[in-house]
């Protein structure tokens, strides 16, 4: 039996399993905390910092990322105190300056009432990527190939394929594209070929021998077949025709 603890979120008492993270507990009870770099299938990382909340333990109050803060007995959490909102607003202002043309960020900024960006236009950049590393983590933890990684550090840090060339280990599964919160990873299937431009890769798509639909990259199917020791004709037909 796992130990249960009781905590307070926004004035209401809840009980939760010890060791779960504040974000998860809040979500289970329908309390909204904004996030960008969180995904249920991937370990939390605390990169986007939007999920910050104010926690009080004893006499000490501080700001923490709820996605990485384990619940404890008697913890008092505020998800939208003035201090949290002030910090979240500044975060969005910073993200907005970095991704000045990204619709996701613009939408979030509007949601938090940012009419006039805090930083003047000369500091604006046109990135889509917020360097949350979700694509890198998905590739490592979910897919298991680690075709890409975060390279450099500080302000020049970004997800890139090794040696900045074609990502050799990539299997074209597109997980990075599906998890990217800001649409920075672009994927396109055209003329039977899948392109993921950010990693400089292109993959031929497998044609279903029955309906003729091009349903998945050949490289990905080979990877799955090898991993599970499946017969070589296992993926001849698409899941719909099976």
């Amino acid at each position: 039996m796992s130990e249960s603890v009781s905590l307070t979120i926004n004035g209401n008492k809840y009980s939760a399993v010890k060791g779960t993270y504040v974000l998860q507990v809040a979500r289970d009870h329908g309390i909204h905390i904004p996030t960008l770099c969180d995904h249920e299938a991937i370990e939390p990382y605390g990169a986007c910092r939007l999920c910050i909340v104010e926690v009080t333990r004893g006499a000490r109050t501080r700001i923490v990322t709820s996605c990485l803060y384990p619940v404890e007995e008697g913890l008092v959490v505020q998800t939208d105190s003035p201090r949290v909102m002030k910090n979240r607003k500044m975060l969005l202002n910073l993200l907005l300056a970095r991704c000045s043309e990204n619709h996701v960020i613009q939408g979030l900024a509007r949601e938090y009432g940012i009419e006039q960006p805090a930083f003047s236009q000369e500091y604006w950049e046109k990135h889509d990527c917020i360097v949350c590393g979700l694509c890198v983590r998905a590739c490592e933890q979910v897919v298991g190939v680690s075709a890409i990684s975060l390279v450099n550090r500080g302000i020049s840090k970004e997800p890139k394929p090794p040696f900045l060339e074609k990502a050799q280990d990539c299997i074209g599964c597109g997980s990075c594209y599906y998890v990217c919160p800001t649409g920075a990873v672009k994927l396109e299937d055209k003329n039977g070929v899948r392109h993921i431009y950010k990693w400089k890769v292109a993959f031929r798509l497998k044609k279903c021998s029955k309906c003729g639909i091009q349903w998945a990259p050949e490289a990905q199917l080979t990877y799955i077949r090898k991993k599970w020791n499946l017969p070589s004709d296992f993926f001849e037909i698409c899941p719909n025709c099976r």
Binding site: E140, V145, A147, S149, V151, R153, P162, Q168, D169
Partner: peptide
Amino acid sequence: IPQSHVYSMATF
């Protein structure tokens, strides 16, 4: 070790 890890470390 995946190439990406080595490259990440070497550039960090």
